[in-house]
Design a binder for these strands. Structure first.
Lengths: 255, 255
DNA sequence: CGTTGCGTTGAGAGGCTTCAACCTAGGTGG
DNA sequence: CCACCTAGGTTGAAGCCTCTCAACGCAACG
């Protein structure tokens, strides 16, 4: 075994994509996932206007941040996959300007701000890496503005699938070039600024070109180079220095 | 005079919109703008792929963050107005995933990361407020995803103008419901994901409805309530607790 | 076995883009 | 002082990408 056994805690797995952690640091982080709760799909974890309570950590499942228009239109502004953490400094805000809900059943935990602060103070490397994670979240938002701002429907979906592939791979949730995507077509529409009808047609286009297979809430990427080329996907904004993001077909299971 | 004289440093003015600063804290911040350089409009301050050098602070003028597509299309993903700071933790990144350039002639300064770290360590309130500023930057990005994702052309422009009004007002750069907007129609298009032609027609629509006046690089808002209603502008995401953001016509000059 | 959620398909409408031309103001050089 | 040049704003026309509305299929489920 060249590689150390990977932690069961997705936050540890994610941070290890940015840096190498010591045993002590891993243990400190593992404690964060100790007590967790499981919520069904479609649960509102945070409502717009709420006072933030603790820092959300997703351990299993997929969730999303969203904003609503008065007419009922919804814009999904971020996906949360296992290992993703809510805003580190959420405690500074008096009220949330957006909501968070679950795509699928999720195992989540709410971290006491003081607890996290303590860990960050006693483990500078963890602190640095968490702050780096925040920068990546911001970079991802910029990429999403780009996505809805100047890509076509097919390109937007392709880009989303490329991004999620890497983010899921980092936490070891890609198997055989596929990953769980418990998101229906209407939700993909709210993500990409498209109607559900047009999402449907664009997905057919991606399938017809032999780029993806999407069924049973699992997305499989059949031709990663072509999908990346179509989306003009440049993974640098995810800053996964230790992860072999440049390789077209990256999988965790490596000798 | 009920109100203390406002600092000449826009960063101080901005932070005072979030919290009240002591004399000592103000002095510490003022030092950051001591040495500045002036750059002409159209200057590339940071190129995509660059290694970040210092933390950018805009003192005068307007700049923007952008990303390019290979075909030459450009997406502007953020505006930087006086008082706006680049990423606090930019030093953590090895290379920038986006560029920064100036709309107009700008006075800027590059802050030594160690200097800023020192100030943050010795002044906890400044530290908190700067981190709050980062949260607001992120919230603004989410709002921009919303803007290009699910608003019409006219609504997108209206929303942008409402947001900039408040951000400029916070640093005392609104006079008579107008502010400097040194951005041409093609650039507004790259901001909102529209063609320059359609920006032109949408601006005409806003003028025709008597909502704005735009000429000579100055934007004047003629009917703020109507403009806000059109854009569904809810200023909460800017978290300007101390600023009277809720008022339709806010001006700095107050008895 | 009806209901419900979700994917799929068709047809028509509309918002926005592209291309192209033209206009205007400001700056520069002869 | 005027001719020219350039950047940027404006307008028209044609087309297409995407939306809306509506219907239908289908599998899961009580």
């Amino acid at each position: 075994m060249m590689q150390a056994r990977r932690s069961a805690n997705p936050l540890v797995r994610k941070l290890e994509a940015f840096t190498s952690l010591s045993e002590v640091e891993c243990v400190a982080l593992e404690a964060l996932g100790a007590s967790s709760e499981t919520v069904p799909s479609g649960t509102d974890l945070v409502l717009e206007g709420d006072k933030p309570r603790g820092i959300l950590l997703v351990l299993e499942g997929m969730a999303y941040r969203y904003k609503m228009r008065v007419g009922g239109a919804r814009q999904i502004v971020a996906y949360l996959v296992p290992g993703d953490l809510g805003d580190l400094d959420a405690g500074l805000l008096d009220r949330m300007d957006h909501g968070i809900a679950t795509f699928s059943a999720c195992r989540v935990t709410w971290i006491e701000p003081a607890l996290l602060t303590g860990i960050r103070r006693s483990h500078p490397k963890i602190d640095r890496t968490l702050r780096l994670g925040t920068l990546v979240d911001e970079a991802t938002l910029r990429e999403w503005v780009m996505n809805v701002g100047c890509r076509t429907a097919v390109e937007r979906l392709a880009h989303l699938f490329c991004e999620l592939f890497l983010r899921m791979d980092v936490v070891g949730l890609v198997t055989g070039n596929g990953y769980a995507l418990p998101v229906n077509q209407a939700e993909l529409g709210d993500t990409t600024g498209l109607s559900n009808v047009h999402v449907n047609r664009s997905l057919q286009e991606l399938r017809r070109r032999g780029l993806i297979h999407l069924g049973g809430k699992t997305l499989t990427i059949l031709d990663m180079p072509a999908l990346r080329a179509l989306a003009e996907f440049k993974p640098d904004y995810l800053h996964l220095s230790r992860h072999r993001a440049g390789l077209p077909f990256v999988s965790v299971a490596v000798p």
